[in-house]
Design a protein around this nucleic acid. Sequence first.
DNA 1: TGACATATTCGAAACGTTTAGATTAGCTTC
DNA 2: GAAGCTAATCTAAACGTTTCGAATATGTCA
Lengths: 336, 336
Amino acid sequence: MLDVAATAGVSVATVSAAVNGTAPVSSELRGRIENAIAAIGYKRNAVARSLKTGATKTIGLVIADITNPFFTDVVAVIQDVLHRAGYAVMLCCTDEDPEQQEEQISLLLDRMVDGLIIAPAGNDHALERVLQRAGIPTVLIDRISHGIAADAVVLDNQRAVQDAIDYLVGLGHRRIGYISGSLDTSTGLGRLAGYCGALENAGIQHDDALVRIGNFREKDAYNAAMQLLVMPERPSAIFSANNLMVIGVMKAIRDMGLRCPDDISVSSFDDFPWADVFQPNLTTIAQPVQAIGEHAAQLILDRLADRSDRPPRQIVLAGRLTIRASCRPFSAPEAR
Amino acid sequence: MLDVAATAGVSVATVSAAVNGTAPVSSELRGRIENAIAAIGYKRNAVARSLKTGATKTIGLVIADITNPFFTDVVAVIQDVLHRAGYAVMLCCTDEDPEQQEEQISLLLDRMVDGLIIAPAGNDHALERVLQRAGIPTVLIDRISHGIAADAVVLDNQRAVQDAIDYLVGLGHRRIGYISGSLDTSTGLGRLAGYCGALENAGIQHDDALVRIGNFREKDAYNAAMQLLVMPERPSAIFSANNLMVIGVMKAIRDMGLRCPDDISVSSFDDFPWADVFQPNLTTIAQPVQAIGEHAAQLILDRLADRSDRPPRQIVLAGRLTIRASCRPFSAPEAR
DNA sequence: TGACATATTCGAAACGTTTAGATTAGCTTC
DNA sequence: GAAGCTAATCTAAACGTTTCGAATATGTCA
């Protein structure tokens, strides 16, 4: 900028004013400055700018797993909206590990991000303290962390799972296996509550043995499903609490020599773009990823715009049960 | 940091030395400083640090589409390696649009990233100039851009596709449809060359009408496949040049009332984690995503470590044809 | 013509670090 | 005991911006 000022024969203050349009500059000087900029190939140094202004125009985005299509779908729309608003996005993954989460958030805070969008892993109170201290706008997505009073956009997980289980019950299923996500997350908890609620409504006795923890991971879900499938009286249907886990469930079913939906019905949280064209065509709960992303981005932009301390807003969206062909009416097992 | 220095009763230089370990500090002062840091809750300001040192410890990562599982797999391992080395990653998406690409790169350059990992969109010479001017270490992944002399890690696309087409030819197929990616990319070109090469080797006359551009996008691929399927003498097999497009191909097949593999064989570039458990079990070319990511990260770290101007290294990896059940031996159409 | 408002432009002090070079203190060594 | 080292610490100048208040120029009005 000094070089520009020198070749244009003006002061740096004027260059700054011209570049940012923060103060009137005569067209004469503006012309000279623009020429100088073009000649030198000057680019404003965002780091120095950030140091002075205290704003990096960057948002930190913390999710569990970049390999999970649900998160990437949401990330894609968040990025889109924020870029349009002049913000860059710094993406970090926690692998569902609270310790890594803290590390990543610390890294983002070091870099002075202006705001944070987080899908919290675990239910650590550490997060609460860290965010308190950071004192920057934060919005929670997908999951909420107990005790953190922040803007959030989440799904009505309980309602959504209840719909799915109701559907299975309606097909006559009574012994329904449930592969749960980590119970350290609000999603894990909420979805399980939906399962339990639906069973209770239907007057079906809850059987602890039918609920297994898959930690939202394919591998863990595979093992969990295996345990379900080797039971003497195995479930006639299995519900998986997310997209990654249902792959594990399907692999377990295959490895046990069973077929879906002939031998066992399967349904899961999160939709797949290919579900319509690959068999079994999975019956899923589709999340409104577009809406989730847009709301999250908008919430953070609002907070960034007016620093007013309006009370946190929680946006709750609904999942949509998408019935395909992976669930069959219950039929008594012939000879197991 | 001044606060820390003040409460510890030392100079900022000493605090800096203690924090960074760049100069010896007596254990006496080190203790006082550590206490002061704990008391105040001091965190080093990375922005100021970057301004002074000229390094942001951040790598820009530019890909086409965060929604594409191939890219996210690669991104995941790159992030992992770079984080371990103390670098943050800033992820940007171009949507295969050279203009957006330039914008995103500009944004990263503004923020003074220390290096760039790019899967270039288009074959613009603009990119070349921009990178030249930026003068920071760059590694290209997945695709190479003509005329850019940079480190790169790519696949032997031609060889890989040739293997797949050889396989189809071996099954007796003669009219093989090809859904191509954008021919502005080296991957689009290389994969098409593999198709053409295999056909030539087999002595099969090339038919332009069998090659359609799907631009690596599901939607475009759907339309492209539709054109193939309404031909009077439609192909008996279709190869899709990436993962997103094969979904479009399958949808087209379904919408035409056909079945895979009964009526038509399908194969594609890029593997799916669920391909083993959903029918038709796709025969695919799996890319070594782990290796791609590790090499890319290592190349950039090497460049960052020694600024030596060693000639660019190009790492070429091999794809692996994974035969499943989506291709059948050719049988003459009965009554089409 | 002098006083005053208005419109531009400029000088210089931040922002929070790093770091080269100066300073000081404490030891050796002759 | 002076000279010379070494080790630890400090002072102060950067890094490239933004921004406040001062300075300058131009025009207007009495």
